[in-house]
């Protein structure tokens, strides 16, 4: 089966600035993938390239095996997209938004959409612009899900929501994932919660892919090593060092992969996802080797 999303050397340039550069990744079907990175890392650009809103300046992007721009007619009904800030027609009522969805989508499941709106207690006759942020997000999600998409792309879906609305939104998404064969890609600059919600992770920073893979593998392949400073160089030879810090006699290394033979003077710690992500983001901004002088 073709991957849900596949890019090769994908790049998008605005003027002379690359918003996304040399991005190669593969997101398997059925996964829930987090696209992580600071603001301006290229997350939105990647998603917009995937739905065909933007055109690549370099490389290729294939979604469900199709090319977003060239095969738009075939692809668009099969993907759901919720843009940042959840834009909708502000002057429409919720009922009119549903009608809009039914008019614009050949695969529209009106019954499911109405059921969701009723379950969420959203007033059908209220104007979209007078809804709360969380309600608007839920309407946008309902519209995307009623297309019965194979792939759901969410751009910073919870960034603007309060904690309760955030939880409810993620709950809604995961509920649908557990119902069937839905692939979800969601971008976020907040790392908390992602470990629970997602099973795959893509780290973007300064327009480039820093890391992509399943969260389980990522957690298993990264370790924090603490040991004597004079042996740091030996460890660095057999491990990919992402971050190191030194004090007078001790060195702390954040490493990826490598052999398991450690000197007994080195202690090995497992890392949380957040620490690993931060290590990569620090690397992206050019602080690959930070040395703390004592």
């Amino acid at each position: 089966m073709t991957p849900a999303l596949e890019t090769h050397g994908l790049g998008r340039r605005y003027g002379s600035k690359w918003a996304l550069r040399d991005c190669t990744l593969e997101i398997p079907r059925g996964s829930v993938t987090a696209l992580v990175g600071p603001n301006g890392a290229g997350k939105t650009t990647l998603l917009r390239l995937a739905v065909g809103l933007a055109r690549p300046s370099a490389g290729t992007v294939r979604v469900l095996g199709l090319e977003p721009r060239a095969d738009a007619a075939e692809l668009l009904p099969r993907i759901g997209f919720v843009a940042q800030e959840h834009p909708l027609f502000g002057s429409f009522t919720v009922a009119e938004m549903l009608r809009t969805g039914s008019k614009l989508n050949p695969t529209w499941d009106d019954e499911a959409a109405r059921r969701r709106i009723a379950e969420l207690d959203l007033p059908l006759d209220q104007k979209v612009k007078s809804l709360s942020g969380g309600q608007r997000a839920q309407v946008a999600l309902t519209l995307a899900l009623a297309k019965r998409p194979e792939l759901l792309l969410l751009d910073e879906p919870v960034a603007s929501l309060d904690p309760l609305a955030r939880l409810e939104f993620l709950q809604s998404v995961l509920e649908v994932v557990s119902d069937g064969e839905l692939t979800v890609v969601l971008s976020s600059h907040i790392v908390a919660d992602l470990e629970r919600v997602c099973d795959h992770l893509v780290i973007l920073s300064v327009g480039r892919t820093q890391l992509a893979g399943s969260i389980e593998e990522i957690l298993a392949s990264h370790r924090l090593l603490t040991g004597p400073r004079d042996e740091a160089a030996d460890v660095a030879r057999t491990h990919e060092v992402l971050r190191e810090s030194h004090v007078e006699r001790q060195t702390t290394l954040l490493v990826r992969g490598g052999a398991h033979v450690y000197d007994s003077r080195w202690t090995v710690h497992e890392l949380g996802l957040e620490e690993i992500v931060l290590a990569y983001l620090g690397q992206g901004s050019g602080r690959r080797r930070e040395t703390v002088a004592s």
Binding site: L53, A72, F89, N105, L143
Partner: peptide
Amino acid sequence: LDLESGASVFAWTQGVTRTRW
């Protein structure tokens, strides 16, 4: 107004192509 408010992004990612819209 749709372009300004971003609602066009919603419209262009529904099941019909931008050309038809």
